[in-house]
């Protein structure tokens, strides 16, 4: 409920911008913004949504575009109108920071683990030439070739 006055203020502020600005209109695009915004009721990105709430959000964005607002201004206006959840990229404050930190941390840990594994296994003689195995007896060599022929890839 507290958002309502803020939204009115934003809307007023945007509405009172000088008309001259339209000469250099930044022309944000609805398809572009739709991909960065969620439909609040349906929980899916706005470009996929087809509900009354999605239509309201689209109308809101289109009005802003008509008023020559840039993409970031429109996103800010959407946040004051509908709250931070409207953005498809969550904010990084409070618990939500985990959405950014945890995958980065896991990837770092994984990279460290893989590097260790490569080093550990390759340090067990992989790089150095291994002592040559004794040559097979002619009978064994013949048998092996015959078996491999039979196996046939």
């Amino acid at each position: 409920m507290r958002r309502a006055p803020a939204a009115v203020l934003v809307a007023l502020a945007l509405g009172l911008m000088p008309a001259a600005a339209s000469a250099a209109c930044p022309r944000a695009s609805l398809p572009d913004i739709e991909g960065q915004v969620m439909c609040l009721v349906c929980g899916v990105p706005l470009n996929l949504a087809d509900s009354p709430q999605a239509s309201r959000e689209r109308d809101f964005i289109e009005r802003m575009i008509d008023r020559c607002r840039s993409t970031s201004q429109i996103k800010a206006a959407l946040v004051s109108q509908y709250g931070p959840r409207v953005l498809a990229l969550p904010d990084d404050s409070g618990f939500n920071a985990a959405v950014y930190i945890v995958p980065a941390l896991m990837l770092l840990l994984g990279a460290g683990g893989a590097a260790l594994a490569v080093r550990w296994w390759s340090s067990r003689g992989g790089g150095a030439p291994a002592p040559a195995a004794p040559a097979l007896s002619p009978a064994d060599a013949r048998r092996l070739e015959a078996e491999m022929e039979r196996w046939e890839r």
């Binding site: 291994a130 040559a132 195995a133 097979l136 048998r143 092996l144």
Partner: peptide, 15 residues
């Protein structure tokens, strides 16, 4: 050469 000799020895052992 080194690798092949080792692999063949292992293969005969498996057989």
């Amino acid at each position: 050469q080194v690798l092949d000799a080792a692999l063949r020895a292992e293969a005969i052992d498996l057989l």
